[in-house]
Design a protein around this nucleic acid. Structure first.
Length: 315
DNA sequence: CGTTCAACCTGGGCGC
DNA sequence: TGCGCCCAGGTTGAAC
C-alpha cells in the first residue's frame, strides 16, 4: 500500500513523538508468521528501552526513527511498511496484526508520565523492521539503494538514470534506485499528468519530456502528501491517527479502468506490465511510434548484440 | 543488463 | 454456505 505520500503522512503523524522516551518495546508474535525483523526482537527491545526518540525521517518508502542516548551512538529503527504496514498512534484495525508496540513517555520533568503507544500494524506481514547503526542505515537507505526523493527529483536526474534504459517508462519509475518513493498508483498518475504512454521505452522519451515527468512527479506527490495519501475504497491505509487519506478523490487513472477520462472522455484502460496493473488514457497519453529519440546513440543495442555473439561463441 | 516469474502473506470479492 | 480462484499500494532473488 504505502508509497511516498502515505509513508510521509505516517512520518508526520509520529514526528510529535520526538523527545519521548521509550519505556517498553514489544514485538507480539500474533497469529501469523513473524515479521522480517533484525536483529531478533529481544535484542531490539533491549537496545530501545530507555532511549529517546531523536528524530523521525523518511527514506523513500521507509520511516527511520532515530533513537539514542547522549553518550551512545545513534541507531535507527527502520520500518518498511511494504503492502499493508501502518504506523499508528491510535487503536489498530485488528488486535492480532500488531507487530511492534512501543510504549513511550512524552513530556519531561514534572509533566512526565503521559504514556502513548506507537504501533506497527501489518496485516499481510510483508513489512520489515530493522535496527541499524549509521553504516547500516547508509547501506539500506543510502544513495546506492535509493535515488533522489520523488518530491525533489529533477528531469536531469531521471534522464541521467533512465535515459538509456530499454524498459517501459512506467516500470522504470518503480525502480527505487532511479527515484525513491514512487509506486504503482503514483507512477500511473504521474505519467497521465505528463501525457506519456506508460509503455514508452525510456530511451524514446525526449530529454524535455523527462522534465515533464519529473515536474509531474513532484506536483502529484506533493499534492498527495497534502491530502494525506490515498485510501482506496475501504482499503487499509490510514493516517497515524486513523483517518483516511483524501488523494484517491483526485486520481485520474489509477483504479478507474472503463470510466471516462476526466480530461478527454475516452475510457481509461488497464494493461499489465511486469505482472502489475497499469492504468492510462490512450488518448491523453498517445503511444510512442518512432524508433528512438533523436541524438541517442544506438550503443545499447550494439553492445547487447556483441555480448550475445561473444556468449554464443564462448559456449 | 533486462525481463520474467515465484515467493513472501492475509483477506476481500467474485463466480459457480 | 462454501470452495476455488483472482486481485491488491512492495521487494527480492533465481532463472533465462
Amino acid at each position: 500500500m504505502p508509497e511516498l505520500p502515505e509513508v510521509e503522512t505516517m512520518r508526520r503523524g509520529i514526528a510529535g513523538l520526538c523527545g519521548a522516551r521509550i519505556v517498553a518495546a514489544r514485538f507480539p508474535q500474533g497469529t501469523c508468521r513473524p515479521l522480517a525483523i533484525a536483529p531478533p526482537p529481544t535484542e531490539i527491545a533491549a537496545r530501545l528501552e530507555g532511549h529517546r526518540i531523536v528524530s523521525v525521517a523518511r527514506f523513500g518508502k521507509r520511516v527511520a526513527i532515530e533513537v539514542g542516548r547522549e553518550e551512545s551512538a545513534p541507531h535507527w529503527l527502520v520500518i518498511e511498511p511494504r503492502m499493508t504496514g501502518l504506523l499508528l498512534v491510535a487503536e489498530p484495525p485488528t488486535p492480532n496484526h500488531v507487530r511492534m508496540e512501543l510504549e513511550v513517555a512524552t513530556g519531561t520533568g514534572s509533566s512526565a508520565g503521559a504514556c502513548q503507544k506507537l504501533l506497527f500494524w501489518d496485516q499481510r506481514g510483508l513489512g520489515t523492521i530493522r535496527l541499524l547503526d549509521a553504516r547500516g542505515l547508509d547501506r539500506a537507505c543510502g544513495a546506492a539503494k535509493l535515488g533522489p526523493d520523488g518530491l525533489v527529483v529533477t528531469g536531469s536526474d531521471l534522464a541521467e538514470r533512465l535515459g538509456e534504459s530499454r524498459r517501459g517508462v512506467k516500470i522504470a519509475l518503480l525502480d527505487q534506485r532511479a527515484v525513491a518513493g514512487i509506486g504503482n498508483i503514483y507512477a500511473a498518475e504521474i505519467l497521465h499528468r505528463a501525457a506519456i504512454d506508460p509503455r514508452t521505452p525510456c530511451h524514446a522519451v525526449a530529454a524535455g519530456a523527462w522534465e515533464a515527468v519529473a515536474r509531474a512527479a513532484r506536483e502529484i506527490l506533493a499534492s498527495a502528501v497534502a491530502h494525506e495519501g490515498s485510501s482506496i475504497g475501504d482499503e487499509l491505509y490510514r493516517t497515524a491517527d486513523n483517518r483516511k487519506g483524501g488523494f484517491q478523490k483526485l486520481h485520474r487513472v489509477y483504479g478507474l479502468a472503463g470510466t471516462p477520462c476526466q480530461a478527454c472522455g475516452a475510457p481509461i484502460e488497464r494493461i499489465v506490465q511486469a505482472q502489475r496493473s497499469t492504468f492510462f488514457c490512450a488518448t491523453c497519453q498517445p503511444r510512442f511510434r518512432g524508433r528512438r529519440r533523436r541524438g541517442t546513440s544506438p550503443k545499447p543495442r550494439a553492445e547487447r548484440l556483441a555480448k550475445l555473439v561473444r556468449r554464443s561463441l564462448g559456449a
